[in-house]
Computed example of a mutant assay.
Amino acid sequence: MTTFDNPAACPTDAASIGGASRRSFLRGALALLALPLTKVAAAAGTFELFKTFQTPEAFLAEAFGATVPPASTLDLDDARQSQLSGVYGRRYPQARLRYWRAPNGRTAWIFDDIGKEGYVPTTSGFVVQNGAIDFGRVLIYRESRGEQIAERSFLQQLVGARASGNGIDKKVDNVSGATYSVKMMQRMARTALMLDSLAR
């Protein structure tokens, strides 16, 4: 719904849709088109470009409680990139990646992946402890379908997963209409396990 600057100018019936009101409406519509898409969404309130299930701050609080350890940095040199690309499916797009490690060795990772080439990145967080996935969360999902992968019932399937070749050792049920997203989450879980091993 378009919000008019002057409520009195908002047409209320067919008879009042005259030249002045029509021009006012067109000016408002053209102004929306000139804005970046994120501002159009905020102004028009008609759609969102992504869905946030959990903020990074909330994810880290869930992982570590009230005392979140300071962020560390993993340098992804050529040797590490070579190992990582085997499970991530391609070279990681950054040379450095932030992560968090508790004194007991528990690590948390926040990173992006795509369901397939041309898809929009999904941001997820994974907690690894003793070489296994403790839990995973979808933080921001940016596709138009397949958001069922963010449900706790789906994510529960990843709990306890360990590395098995370039994949994980747990069977994960497919979600109708979200096959690529399901495969992406398995790949992200395996990537988190690899990152944890590289950071030791």
Rank of each mutant, 00 (worst) to 15 (best):
A192W: 00
T46A: 15
V68Y: 10
G167W: 13
Y141D: 15
L155I: 02
P93V: 03
P7R: 05
Y88R: 04
R145Q: 15
A63N: 09
I168R: 01
R200P: 03
G160P: 06
D169V: 12
W109A: 04
T123E: 15
G28C: 10
G125C: 10
A132D: 02
Q94Y: 12
R145D: 12
D173S: 13
L74H: 02
A42M: 08
A95V: 11
D134A: 08
A44R: 01
K171N: 15
D13V: 00
T52R: 07
V138W: 02
C10T: 12
F25A: 10
D75Y: 13
G19W: 09
G131I: 14
F59L: 03
G118L: 04
V127H: 05
N104Q: 14
N174Q: 11
S85E: 14
G45W: 08
T3K: 14
D13M: 00
V128L: 10
D113K: 09
S72G: 13
T122V: 14
G115H: 06
D112P: 10
A20M: 09
T191L: 02
Y99D: 05
G18C: 01
A14E: 00
R27I: 11
R152N: 07
P11S: 09
D5R: 05
G18Y: 01
T2P: 04
R96P: 02
F126S: 01
G18W: 04
T12W: 02
I140P: 07
